[in-house]
Simulated scan of single mutants.
Amino acid sequence: MKKRLLFLIFLAVFTIISCNSNKEKNNADQVVSESVDFNQSEYSFYGEEITKSGYSELSSPEDLLNGKDSSTVKVTGEVSSVCKKKGCWMTLDIPGQLKPLRVTFKDYSFFVPKNIEGRKVIVKGVLKKEVQSEEMRKHYAADEEKSQEDIEKIKGNEIEYSLVADGVILM
């Protein structure tokens, strides 16, 4: 009887520990894994789990495209803004460029935390040059919680570089 009681206690403790070890997921419940240890630092993965190696520093999108319409890249950069409504897009500062690189997430299948401005990320996905409509530019400005006055100043379509990410590592 004591062995059975000890076994049940052990099983209950094991179950509690297992349940508590599950990592939190983002709003879309799409975090592949959270808090993976690389050299004693914590990293968070969103979307497809990607490796930390083999990336390049974010530089001129023209150079990364190398004359093509689109290209699969893995780059690192600093987050300059994030969608404040859902975390469904972010922008990365591009050294030497006035406009940041807009990063959206493949098939709208995952989001990132809404408070990661200033954090470094590694992003893997498809980089492309595209025309962004005035309507979409205003939509992004509203998501970023810009003032109505700033939103109304947005006029016309604009050529923009964007990256549709398969996966993101938040450092």
Rank of each mutant, 00 (worst) to 15 (best):
D143Q: 10
V82N: 00
R102F: 06
L64E: 03
P113Q: 03
K114N: 05
I50R: 01
K84S: 09
E117F: 06
S53Y: 09
E152A: 14
E158V: 13
E160S: 11
K52A: 09
Y108Q: 14
S71V: 10
T104I: 04
F111V: 06
K153C: 06
D69A: 12
Y55V: 07
R137K: 07
W89R: 01
G167S: 02
R4Q: 15
E62W: 07
T15F: 15
E34H: 15
S71C: 11
D93A: 08
F10S: 11
S35I: 12
S133I: 07
L65I: 03
E145A: 11
D29F: 14
F38P: 07
T51R: 13
I94A: 01
S133A: 06
E160R: 13
L98G: 14
I17A: 10
K84E: 09
S59L: 11
G125A: 05
E78P: 06
F14M: 14
E48L: 08
F14Q: 08
L11S: 14
N39S: 11
K3I: 12
I116H: 04
Q30A: 15
V31I: 09
L98A: 14
S81I: 02
G167L: 01
T91A: 04
D93I: 05
T91L: 01
S70A: 08
S60P: 07
E48F: 06
D166Q: 08
D150N: 08
K155T: 11
Y161H: 03
K128I: 05
S35H: 15
S44I: 10
K138H: 07
S18V: 13
I159T: 15
V79D: 00
V121Y: 02
A12L: 10
R119Q: 14
S56K: 15
P100N: 04
K85F: 13
D93F: 05
H139A: 01
E49A: 15
T104Q: 04
T72K: 09
E57W: 11
Y140H: 06
C88F: 03
E130G: 08
G47Q: 00
E49C: 10
V123A: 03
K2H: 11
W89V: 00
Q30I: 12
E34T: 15
L92K: 00
S18L: 12
V82F: 00
Y46M: 02
Q148S: 15
S33M: 10
V31G: 02
F111K: 01
S56F: 09
R4P: 07
F38E: 12
N115T: 08
I154C: 06
E144W: 01
V82G: 00
K128L: 08
E134D: 05
F110R: 01
S41L: 13
S60D: 14
E152L: 11
G47M: 00
D150Q: 10
E24P: 14
F7W: 13
M136G: 04
R4V: 14
K85T: 14
R137F: 05
V82Y: 00
G87D: 02
V79L: 03
Y46S: 01
S18C: 12
T15P: 07
E130R: 10
I17P: 04
L170K: 02
F38Q: 11
N157V: 08
E134Y: 04
G54Q: 08
T15I: 11
R119G: 09
E130N: 09
S56A: 11
F111W: 05
I159Q: 10
Y140N: 05
G167H: 00
